[in-house]
């Protein structure tokens, strides 16, 4: 059981890392989600790895009894994982919203295509005038306009 769990965690980490190295923003977010789930599973496993094979009881005092039944599962990692899942839910919801607004604004899902330093700020009026005078506007403007997919 522990072995299987370890392999599963390793697999999740590997998949997460692989996806995080991609250039698509959505894949990076999916990678982060998978990575976080690997971490959650790991906390659960780290709680008490040796007892996973044994028949552990839930850590709640049964009706009428005074004590927990032995051996009981360590409840703390479960509480930690629960919290971590809730936090992960919030973060993933936000990152997806971010990815959507990035796509709405730039029409790009490729992290590299967002990075071009010339595109960081839309040209100000003054800059634009200067550029027109140098007849360079044509080379900059199409890429700087939102909605024109650069990485497509």
């Amino acid at each position: 059981m522990v072995t299987w769990l370890a392999m599963l965690i390793g697999g999740l980490y590997a998949a997460g890392f692989y996806l995080m190295l991609r250039r698509s923003l959505i894949k990076i977010i999916l990678g982060l989600a998978i990575f976080a789930h690997g971490a959650n599973l790991m906390i659960l496993a780290a709680g008490n790895p040796r007892r996973v094979d044994v028949d552990v009881k839930i850590p709640i005092v049964p009706e009428g009894a005074e004590q927990l039944l032995q051996p009981y599962a360590d409840p703390l990692p479960q509480a930690l994982v629960l919290t971590a899942i809730v936090i992960g839910f919030g973060l993933q919801a936000f990152t997806l919203a971010l990815a959507k607004s990035v796509y709405d604004r730039m029409g790009v899902d490729d992290v590299d295509a967002m990075r071009d330093p010339d595109l960081t700020e839309p040209p100000t009026r003054r800059d634009a005038q200067e550029l027109v005078s140098h007849e360079e506007l044509d080379s900059v403007a199409p890429a700087a306009l939102p909605g024109t997919a650069v990485g497509s």
Binding site: G90, F94, A97, D104, R105
Partner: peptide, 14 residues
Amino acid sequence: GFTLTVVFTLLTEE
């Protein structure tokens, strides 16, 4: 509140 804020934002066109 949180979930619906996010869901409504995601479903609303810019």
